[in-house]
Design a protein around this nucleic acid. Structure first.
Length: 103
DNA sequence: GGACTGACCAACC
DNA sequence: AGGTTGGCCAGTC
């Protein structure tokens, strides 16, 4: 029996390199169109080895604990393009959730 | 079991 | 354009 947030971990862990997903999108994939908060709750647990840096706000903004600049750096290292606004270019790397261009 | 909270999101003022 | 409110779901007190 997997709790909702456990499924979130599976989904986040499956985000391909060079792509990002939004909290709401992850929740939507799991069947909870408004469960974005639970996704954030799951991220708050900060599991080991989870690429939570690939999970951003619906508008591409980065949030979480105060490591926003750190995440941005990690994302840039993965090849995620950033807009001059300091947000992730969702229009270019928003993950479909169906393709896993896993390396 | 009821109430509060929360790494959100969108609508409303 | 920015602040507030409601809503969702799960976990914690």
């Amino acid at each position: 029996m997997d709790s909702f947030y456990q499924q979130v971990y599976q989904l986040v862990a499956r985000i391909p390199k060079g792509r990002v997903a939004t909290y709401g999108q992850l929740a939507w994939m799991l069947g909870h169109p408004r469960g974005a908060r639970q996704v954030g709750w799951a991220m708050r647990h900060c599991p080991d080895g989870l690429p939570w840096q690939r999970v951003v706000m619906a508008d591409g903004s980065i949030t979480g604990g105060g490591y926003e600049p750190l995440r941005r750096m990690m994302l840039e290292e993965e090849g995620i393009p950033f807009l001059p606004d300091g947000r992730v270019d969702l229009g270019a790397c928003r993950w479909d959730g169906n393709e896993s261009t896993d390396e």
